[in-house]
Amino acid sequence: MNISIKENLGKPLTPAELGKLLGISASTVRRHYRRFGGVEVASGTYRFFENIVMEKIDANLRQAFEESTMEGSSNRSQESERTSISGRQPEKLPRRRSMGGRKTEGNDGEADQGRHGL
């Protein structure tokens, strides 16, 4: 069974041809040649094959879709848990006079230990 490279991998593309198809510059394609399944055939000379590029793009789209659906579902569940547990908005903490770090003298002459007693 002798399958030619063109039949198996698809049409070979140069960085300029792939860039034109994707709407990006040839230099961007060369810089990220591994992402698109490119092969460096000589020093600084890259070739891409249609079928491999399509597989890489499909895998990238699938991963992005899975990540976005996972993020969306976790955000929705967290929001619903917040409202179902308390049923009210979170309470705002009082503003501090300073950003912290230094202890200040209070009215009674003792150092202000803050809300954590430190």
Rank of each mutant, 00 (worst) to 15 (best):
I3T: 09
I5Y: 06
I5F: 12
I5R: 11
I5G: 06
K6C: 07
N8D: 01
N8P: 00
G10T: 00
G10C: 07
P12V: 05
L13V: 08
L13C: 10
A16I: 14
A16R: 15
E17V: 09
G19E: 12
G19A: 13
K20T: 00
K20A: 14
G23S: 14
S25E: 15
S27G: 12
T28A: 07
V29T: 07
H32A: 08
R34S: 05
R34E: 09
F36H: 09
F36K: 07
G37A: 07
G38F: 11
V39M: 07
V39S: 05
V39Q: 04
E40I: 06
V41L: 15
G44E: 07
T45M: 12
Y46P: 11
Y46E: 07
R47F: 15
E50M: 04
E50F: 04
E50K: 06
I52K: 05
V53N: 07
M54L: 14
M54W: 09
D58W: 08
D58M: 13
D58G: 01
A59L: 12
L61M: 09
R62I: 01
Q63P: 00
F65M: 04
F65C: 03
E66C: 02
E67H: 02
S68V: 05
T69D: 01
M70Y: 05
E71N: 02
S73N: 10
R76L: 15
R76T: 08
Q78P: 00
Q78M: 08
Q78D: 01
S80P: 00
T83I: 15
G87K: 01
G87T: 01
G87M: 03
Q89D: 06
E91K: 03
E91T: 00
P94Q: 02
P94H: 01
R96C: 10
R96V: 07
S98W: 09
G100C: 12
G101N: 07
G101M: 10
G101E: 09
R102F: 15
K103N: 11
N107G: 06
D108K: 05
E110Q: 09
A111P: 13
A111W: 14
A111V: 04
D112P: 00
D112I: 15
Q113K: 14
Q113W: 12
R115F: 11
R115S: 06
H116V: 06
H116K: 07
G117A: 03
G117L: 11
G117R: 05
